[in-house]
Design a protein around this nucleic acid. Structure first.
Length: 215
DNA sequence: ACCCAGGGTCATA
DNA sequence: TATGACCATGGG
């Protein structure tokens, strides 16, 4: 213990759960939409909201921008915070369109794209990094609540350590390997749902031997 | 009847 | 800079 690193966590969780095939979406734009809708929200609820958008024929930039925010909010209702998220979604899509579309943004370098995303209202570090990694395939690590909790329980960082510390630590360790960073975040979420919850359920945990919790 | 979920903004001290 | 309030649906 104490010698475990991100690569070992990746190996252990990958062995336990297999390939995650993230992000669960049919298009790049759907990843972008999902990244906003899943803020502090179960993915199951997000799927309903996305299904509503699809059935309404609104799962594209023009379809969303042509909608009054009140109607957009009604469609994404199941994902929670629907008024807040309608505004955030509209802001993000306006940014995408105003920049020339997803194809244009795909040509931007990662620091420029990350900075621009963070300037959009309602896009914080995790949502920006979701988009960078899972929509644009950039080698960035996504830090979420499960990651914080896990890294704290592994004894790596304090619970409240700054977002950038965790992100840069993992990126330095795994290198600019988008596939590995993709898989690690997805596995941490899957593991978080099953074991690394606020009240840990350590029975059958694949990280038992390197974790400070659960003895 | 609680607690929690693949966050982020804003007001306040 | 660091807390706390707020946003809201749906599952366990």
């Amino acid at each position: 213990m104490g010698t475990a690193d991100a690569s070992e966590v990746l190996r252990r969780l990958g062995g336990a759960y297999g390939p995650m095939h993230w992000w669960p979406a049919d298009s790049v734009f759907e990843v972008v939409v999902g990244a906003v809708l899943t803020q502090n929200t179960r993915w199951q609820n997000v799927e309903r909201a996305i299904a509503n958008l699809r059935e309404a024929g609104r799962l594209d930039p023009d379809g969303i921008l042509a909608l009054p925010e009140s109607e957009l909010a009604a469609l994404i209702r199941p994902s929670g915070y629907f008024n807040v998220k309608a505004r955030r979604l509209a802001s993000l899509v306006r940014f995408i369109r105003g920049s020339g579309g997803l194809e244009t943004l795909a040509g931007w370098d990662t620091p420029r794209l990350r900075t621009a995303l963070l300037e959009v209202h309602g896009i914080g570090p995790e949502t920006a990094d979701d988009i960078l990694l899972y929509a644009f395939g950039r080698p960035v690590f996504v830090v979420d609540a499960y990651t914080r909790r896990l890294f704290a329980r592994l004894g790596w960082f304090a619970e409240r350590a700054p977002y950038e510390e965790l992100r840069l630590h993992v990126e330095a360790e795994l290198g600019a390997d988008a596939g590995a960073l993709n898989e690690l975040h997805a596995l941490i979420v899957e593991h978080g749902k099953r074991h690394c919850r606020p009240r840990p359920s350590c029975n059958g945990c694949a990280l038992r031997e390197i974790c400070t919790v659960g003895g």
